[in-house]
């Protein structure tokens, strides 16, 4: 076996660590500056916009938001309701669809799966105009339904669930439930769903984050300020009212990111594993 000289190996190792640490810092530093500036006063930020240490203006920055359109608490609640509803519906019905694809032999099974693969990539933008007009006609603009109900048909989630279930479901379990006289729907809810828990958890995280971060659909459907979601609230920070309130802008951005940071660092293990799993489309 060929070995590079010891000194050379030490150098390459050092280079690798330097690159990785630099990239890690690059991931963190914009957010770090943002969080620090959220606690600093406008005058301080004007003097020097970079600080690695916090200051004492957090409270006065908060006061800037009083009586203005940017309301992080409202945005948080609205996004929570929409993302929560969409996640529950999406994960449950995708599991049900995946079960239909794995457990039963029916004639349209393979065509249906091929169809799901084919529509995997259709983005909201291509149907947005028709969707808006449709919702406007039935009076559903400024309603949460058009942001929650479409989650019932989530092709990517179905795809992932099917792959998982195909490996995890044993026919014996289903058959023994049948012998015990359980109905098909009961079997799915009481026996199959618990088997799918790990996959459901992974998909729940991604569905929730995806729905939480979505800007396009809420932006075209919601015009009532009390219905705004977090990403729309954020977009208000570009407005002129905040042009000179640097500290408040950073604070607003921080408030929208904080819940995601908490979720991410609490569940990072599962999220990274989920990203890796999602890649193996076999």
């Amino acid at each position: 076996m060929k070995h590079e000289p010891i000194a050379g190996r030490a150098i390459t190792r050092t280079i690798k660590y330097i690159v990785c640490i630099t990239l890690a810092i690059l991931s963190v530093i914009p957010f770090w500056i943002m969080i620090m500036n959220a606690t600093r006063g406008t005058y301080e930020i004007q003097q020097s916009a970079i600080s690695l240490l916090p200051s004492t203006f957090l409270k006065s920055n908060f006061q800037v938001f009083e009586g203005k359109a940017f309301n992080p608490l409202v945005g948080f609640m609205n996004s929570f309701i929409i993302a929560g509803g969409a996640t529950i519906l999406g994960v449950y019905f995708s599991s049900l669809t995946a079960y239909a694809l794995v457990a039963y032999q029916w004639r349209l099974r393979q065509p249906f799966f091929t169809f799901i693969m084919a529509v995997l990539m259709i983005p909201a933008q291509v149907s947005g105009i028709g969707f808006y007009q449709f919702m406007y006609r039935i009076g559903w603009t400024n309603s949460y339904f058009p942001l929650i109900l479409p989650a019932i048909a989530a092709p990517a989630v179905v795809f992932f669930m099917r792959q998982y279930l195909a490996g995890a479901l044993s026919v014996d379990i289903v058959n023994s439930a049948r012998i015990d006289g359980a109905g098909e729907f009961y079997t799915f809810n009481r026996i199959v769903l618990p088997i799918m828990k790990p996959a459901m958890a992974t998909q729940a995280i991604f569905s929730f984050v995806g729905s939480w971060n979505n800007l396009f659909m809420p932006l075209i459907l919601l015009t009532d300020k009390s219905k705004y979601t977090m990403p729309i609230m954020v977009s208000l920070l570009r407005g002129d009212i905040y042009r000179t309130e640097y500290g408040a802008v950073y604070l607003g951005l921080t408030l929208t990111v904080l819940p995601l940071f908490i979720v991410y660092f609490a569940l990072s293990k599962y999220i990274i594993a989920g990203v890796a799993l999602g890649s193996m489309k076999e």
Partner: peptide, 10 residues
């Protein structure tokens, strides 16, 4: 995982 809207304005 961070909201793209936030990143754009940041």
């Amino acid at each position: 995982i961070i909201t793209a809207a936030t990143i754009a304005i940041l």
